[in-house]
Design a protein around this nucleic acid. Structure first.
Lengths: 207, 207
DNA sequence: GCTAATATGAGTAAGACTACCTATTTTTTT
DNA sequence: AAAAAAATAGGTAGTCTTACTCATATTAGC
């Protein structure tokens, strides 16, 4: 097997170093060139033909998908793997649409990345398994089932308002707000003292 | 100079590998033991005395501050450096309150970590982006005026426990916990419905 | 040893939230 | 137009939290 030129890009220098180690340990026939920015990586790709590119998704200025799209224009046959913190399905799907061959979650174990590289080299696609959905994620899914008014109430709660204050804000009765609270709690499967308040504070960023 | 036992903890295996490389490259007299979870790290610390501990802040279950607090109980003279994505002031302040010696942002360049280690070994404190830290937020300052038991109660509240549950945990009367809550609220100048709960959740990372 | 701080526990009252109900009006969907 | 969903509001009971007061035993500091 010939030597393969491998392009490695991550803006976190320490992570990048770990990445080089992990990959070189496993694939002795790789000639790895690592870069801490997509711009430097792309510059290098202008003068050196790469067979495989492995890039972080979230980087300043140019993101991983843009970089890989550019690289594909230069070398249409280049194989590509994206590394990311995101486990969202739509980003993954978007990655595949953009001609990415592999998609690996950053906090997965080393084995996962190795398998991904092997599969991609064989010509297959590889996508990290979706994380098991936990309780919290389920609840966030349920957020979509809330009505406009319920979301308004939840927003009020997350803004440290009492039911009485929210009632005054919305010009309705305290009892109406209490009913909304109950309905929200039922939809989100929340039980017990102040569980709704806790949820609202912890998910303030979503509201 | 004697060999130094260094404990390294990060739940991202690839980053952890990079970390080992970077540190070993620079400090040849370090005997580095790396772990992917605070629990494993702490178990190891029970049978081996470490001189320096470098840990990620955000990890599942036990966080970096808790780990380092526990390690300090075992080895009061241990030097400690926290790695984190967060540049928030309150977390940094909390780190300092908890006796952490160094605080380095994960995406900083390698040199920064090396400098941090060198400074901490000299007995100095090292904090990334010093200028961010300034004394504001009186409430968080007032945290220092809380007694041990009051902090325990506050921790319980931030862990979503009711007064009744905390009372059971600590084998005291519900009334005692209610009194502690009142004393805490007075010290932190908190007033109104569930203000203590809101404070506890919002400052969970400090407790 | 004396004093202050801490931890413990109780009494009482009020306010807030939860957890069920039922019911009417308004809006949206089919 | 009929049916479904959403918003409104009230009842009742129970739990939890806040906000005071007071009291006592233990611990820590001077």
């Amino acid at each position: 097997m010939d030597k393969l030129n491998v392009l490695l890009v991550d803006d976190h220098p320490i992570f990048l170093k770990g990445l080089v180690e992990v990959i070189q340990d496993e694939f002795h026939d790789f000639v790895i060139h690592s870069f801490s920015s997509p711009e430097l990586a792309f510059d290098s790709a202008k003068s050196l033909k790469y067979n495989l590119a492995i890039s972080d998704l979230d980087m300043p200025k140019m993101n991983g998908i843009s970089l890989i799209t550019e690289l594909k224009i230069l070398y249409p046959e280049i194989l590509t793997i994206l590394l990311t913190m995101h486990k969202e399905q739509d980003i993954m799907r978007s990655a595949l649409v953009n001609g990415i061959d592999g998609y690996v979650l950053k906090d997965d174990v080393v084995d996962e990345l190795v398998i991904a590289i092997e599969e991609v080299l064989k010509g297959n696609k590889y996508i990290s398994e979706l994380e098991v959905i936990n309780e919290q994620d389920e609840q966030i899914e349920e957020l979509k089932s809330l009505t406009k008014t319920e979301l308004l109430v939840l927003k009020g709660i997350s803004d440290n308002k009492t039911s009485k204050e929210i009632a005054n804000d919305l010009f309705v009765s305290l009892k109406t707000i209490e009913n909304h609270r109950n309905n929200i709690s039922r939809k989100l499967r929340l039980k017990g003292s102040n569980s709704l308040l806790k949820f609202a504070i912890n998910n303030k960023n979503l509201l």
